[in-house]
Each structure stands twice: as C-alpha cells, then as structure tokens.
Design a protein around this nucleic acid. Structure first.
Lengths: 145, 145
DNA sequence: AGATTATAGTTTGGATTCTAACATTAATAA
DNA sequence: TTATTAATGTTAGAATCCAAACTATAATCT
C-alpha cells in the first residue's frame, strides 16, 4: 500500500502526460512561424508584460540560458522588446510591440479555442470539477514555495 | 469575466510551471549519468515493463523519433533491453536488465524522497486535498481521450 | 489474393535546449 | 569602505529533441 506522499509522487510523474494530451494537436499557424516556447512566452506576456526575463523563463520552463535565445528570436521577429529596468541595471524587462500584441491576442484565442474543443464533451459538472481540481492543485503548491 | 473554459485554459497554461517547481532541484546522482528523459523512462519501466516503445515515448512525452535515441542510450548503458513481441513483429517491448532494475529502484526512491521533502510542510488535510485534486484532474482528462 | 492504408520504429539534418563559464550589477558581511 | 557572495542575463559548445522521410509489418478494403 502506498503512502499519501508516494501516491502524490506517482501522480506528479504522470500529470505531464495528461497535460500533453490536452495540448496535443494544437496548431499555431500564425503567419510568422513560432515554436512552442515562443508562443508560450507571448501568452505570458499577453497576460502580464514588463516583468524581467527570469520571470518569463520560469513560466515557460526553460533555463535562463535557453530563454535568452527565445527572447532573441522574438525580438528579431519584431514581436517583443527588451527594456531597461530603472532600479536594477542587471534586469531586462520584456514588453510586446504592437505587432507582438496582435500576435499574442491571436495565439491566446487559438489556445482557448483548442482547449474548448478538447473539453467539449464534458458536462457542466465535470467542467467545474476540473476547474476546481486545477485551482486546488495550484493553490496548494503555491503554499510550499 | 472569464468563462469556465477560458479559466481552465489559463490553468492548463500555468500548471507546468507548478509541476516544475515540485521537480526543481532534484538530483539524479546515480553513478551512471542519466538525463531527465532517461530517468523518466526507467521510472515508468519500474512501474510496468514489457510494453512496446511507443507506450513509453508517450509517457515520457517525446516523439517516437526522439525516443529511439533514449532507448539507444539506455541500452548502451546496459539498463534496458529491446525484446521482440510475438504477435507483432514491428513492435519492440522494453524490459529492464538487472542493472536497470537496481537503477530504477534507486531513482524511484530518490524521486519519492524529493517529493516528500517538497510537500513536507503540508498538513494531513492539505496532503489529502492535493492527492484528491490530482486524481480528479487525471480522471476527468482520462474521460476525453 | 492483391492493393491500399495504417502503425511501430529508425534515420537524418536542422532547430532547440542544456550545462557551465563568464561579465555585470546588486546585496551582504567584515 | 572593501571584500565576499548572490542574482541577472549572455555566450559557446555539447547534448537533446523535433519534423519529415523511410523501412518493415499489420490491418483493412475491393
């Protein structure tokens, strides 16, 4: 018999596969070709811009070294800009350009549509249960960081 | 105001970051150097071996092309073996060698220990809530595949 | 049966990511 | 203040991953 901790460890191992299923088949056919990391970065910027690069690299799940390359590519494509942060000269904040805002908006709605399609077969109760379970999971993990 | 679907989409976006937090800092200091994909593969094999390669590639979250290389490396390190499946000659089942079993066991307990440490500050009620929330999430996603 | 389509796994070349060392700036300690 | 340690971001080379074409086998259709 597994302890609660062992059971949680097992669930944590398998969860990424299920998230992967939800994301599977998504197509980011924005005129400018974007890979997953670039799209994710735009989505997080769309939600909230102006944070230093390290914030976004954590959210996207890349090491800072890798994220530098992502920011380089997005900047080269004219979708974001690095801007100085007044109180700490080591930091670069990221902001969306106008073109980047339009792209982010588009990707945001594509992403929402994709998830909507995936969960379309769930009834209202199941949808609420899923939402609550996700919120609960995140709230508890929030507590331990 | 967000719809339930939009809220779920937002949670799905951020969940990987929280899983990342739970995994952060884990050290697989097994004598033989293993990367994350190799370690994951051993963990899934430890749970259940003898499935065809495609099963494990899905669980680990790699394309089949990438997974071929992972299996190659694990085989070269003497931790797994490809074995023929009687009823379908396209398939290769994976099994652990004795050395692989020992490694998997070790990694499994390191992983459990790591998660235990991460969630050590939670009380019994929170632990149960986390377990239930994770189980619920997975159960609902199971329904739509 | 023979043809067509689908599935499992491999290969290859290019893209992406990781690790580790580094430069710069900030925070802390002596 | 000066020295030490920590944090932010970049760089470079090696490792890993992806996409697409391919081989081999199985399943389905006519």
């Amino acid at each position: 018999m597994l302890t609660t901790e062992e059971k949680i460890a097992e669930l944590v191992r398998t969860l990424p596969m299920y998230i992967g299923f939800l994301l599977d088949g998504i197509e980011i056919k924005y005129p400018i070709k974007l890979n997953v990391s670039e799209a994710k970065t735009l989505l997080f910027l769309h939600k909230r811009e102006g944070n230093p690069m390290s914030e976004y690299s954590k959210k996207v799940g890349l090491t800072k070294g890798s994220f530098t390359a992502v920011a380089d590519r997005l900047e080269k494509k004219g979708l974001i800009k690095r801007v100085a942060v007044s109180d700490d000269r080591r930091k670069n904040a990221l902001i969306l350009t106008e073109k980047g805002k339009a792209a982010a908006q588009k990707i945001d709605s594509l992403f929402n549509q994709h998830i909507s399609n995936k969960i379309a077969r769930l009834n209202d109760e199941e949808l609420n249960n899923l939402k609550n379970a996700l919120e609960k999971t995140i709230a508890i993990i929030e507590k331990i960081k």
